[in-house]
Amino acid sequence: MTDNWEPVVIAYLCHFCSYSAADLAGSMRLEYAPNVRISKLMCTGKVDAQFILKAFEDGADAVMVSGCEEGDCHYLEGNLRAKKRIAHVKSLLKEVGLEPERVEMYNIGASDAPKFVRAVNEMTERARKLGPNPLKKKENTVPA
């Protein structure tokens, strides 16, 4: 399984900043790890611990949540709420027996496509170092 294994990184991005940064990365023809699967939300304040646990239960190797820069949230403090929630999820992962480093919170402004690229590459590399999620079902393995 490890031979063909490529990490799957789930990214929850907010509509107003981080998703726009991802969009801009495309327009700028920036290259980043193809391992990321993006899910757009109106705000990272919507991210629930269950979204992230479920992603891991279904085999994700890493999850990144990215909102607006602190102080710039379109909904004022959704990203600050997400930050707290991610800290909580890290403790839940530890309880369960997964590495807390598999989840991370980022803040990426709409015009900061290079930061988005760095974040995706960083999470992909991190997942690669940590190895496959032990909960991954064999049939879910991503072909090389």
Binding site: Q50, E57, L92, L98
Partner: peptide, 13 residues
Amino acid sequence: ELLATELRMAAKI
């Protein structure tokens, strides 16, 4: 939902 997910994950690991 959270506890059940955690228990399933821990058991599988």
